[in-house]
Write a protein that binds this DNA or RNA. Structure first.
Lengths: 231, 231
DNA sequence: CGATGACTTGACACCAATCAACTGAGGTGG
DNA sequence: CCACCTCAGTTGATTGGTGTCAAGTCATCG
């Protein structure tokens, strides 16, 4: 147990998360600094302004990052899938709140200890930087999605984001997708209303592109009908 | 000249750019690795897929970052102001094209040499990481702006982004703003059409919030009328 | 059994997209 | 010098997609 305090040995994302690629020794060093914690759906992982946690890796489940404006209106700015990385290292301020979308498990690394670790292990810092770059790229993907697409494309875009994030390997027709977001959360993320999201799903189901199975389950019947045109 | 190859000594952003905070020695080390280059409005600074440039600091002028989808449609995902930082270090792929919005000057750092420098100077890497985090935060700001705001709020939001980016210090009524974007570029960035942008500017001018001075100049008459409600 | 909350569906209104015409500046050439 | 073109921008008329409001369904829970 002393040698594997975070349970890395059976970590489902050890090969793809930010910790991957570190040597055995470095990983153990890192593992000693963090702790693994589980959250239930709806729980706040950290709130805006909380600076105790510097970064975190999502081991299982799904997490949303959102902000609240002056009126207290929520705005979801990112979704995280397993192996996803939350980093606010050296940021001027932490302005996002992280909330569990489903029951989930994370490896949390406290700020002080991680900043020291990063300065002495440039490999680790490099991986953090790479992860932050990927976060930036997916923020750009989201900008693309909500900036110019109509309601249908936004909904299909979200389905594809989740399908790709929750499974490894390419998508196949018939795949069952667990969408842990409520309609309200989907709407908030996509910049739509609950009603519009619901209607789009109805349309997609009528077209035979998807089938709803229970409140959260969505079976992707024809992936090609969801993807944007490739010409 | 050997001691100041990039012209750092009279650099207008030396106190706020990514290079600030480095010691004199480190900055000279860094300066030896980069080169300063000027671009004219419309020129491409680097295209998607070009991996020769790892990062760049904008010294003067304005730059847009955009992507092109399968149909070749442009989607602007970020704007850069002086002291702004472009980094795609360790990213899986460079997917953005950087274009000069106005005549501008940048310090460019080639990829190979910068990655070496980062690994040996953790101070530098830390600043790059911080800059990338700030880029992420402004991407989130943009998501907020275009995801749920109406046309008026998007246009005023852009005006404020540019006003804050192009001057240091707080905003004051009566300030003249040079908006180097064409209507089409504004529309693309905000996820609107040219016509809607034009109409919103007309409305804002009729309300006395702004005054258009020439094709590019906008005088901010009442900043309070542009800012979102704070209650 | 009623209450609650997530979701769906319908009717309608409204904002922004679309299509189209017009203006004005800058450039070119007869 | 003026006719003409082009291109960015503005303005107007109309359409359509999405928001809004409202009602209704269904599952869960006390």
């Amino acid at each position: 147990m002393m040698h594997d305090p975070l349970g890395c040995d059976d970590c489902p994302v050890r090969e793809i998360a930010v910790c991957a690629g570190l040597g055995e020794v470095e990983r153990r060093d890192l593992a000693r600094l963090g702790r693994r914690k589980s959250y239930r759906r709806g729980e706040t992982i950290f709130a805006a302004g909380d600076s105790s946690i510097a970064c975190a890796t999502l081991v299982s489940g799904a997490v949303k990052l959102s902000r609240f404006d002056a009126q207290g209106t929520e705005r979801t700015v990112a979704l995280l899938h397993p192996a996803g990385f939350l980093a606010r290292l050296f940021a001027v301020e932490i302005d996002c709140t992280a909330t569990a979308l489903s029951d989930c498990t994370l490896c949390l690394f406290p700020r002080d200890v991680v900043e020291r670790q990063m300065r002495s292990h440039s490999d680790f810092m490099e991986r953090v930087l790479r992860a932050t770059s990927e976060q930036l790229a997916s923020a750009h993907n989201l900008i693309d999605l909500i900036g110019r697409r109509d309601a249908r494309a936004r909904v299909t875009g979200l389905l594809l984001i989740f399908a790709e994030g929750s499974c490894d390997g390419p998508l196949a027709d018939g795949q069952l997708l667990d969408l842990p977001l409520t309609r309200g959360e989907v709407a908030n993320f996509l910049g739509l209303t609950i009603e519009t999201v619901s209607r789009q799903l109805t349309i997609l189901e009528a077209e035979g592109a998807i089938a709803r199975e229970g409140p959260r389950g969505i079976r992707l019947l024809r992936v090609a009908a969801l993807a944007p045109p490739t010409d």
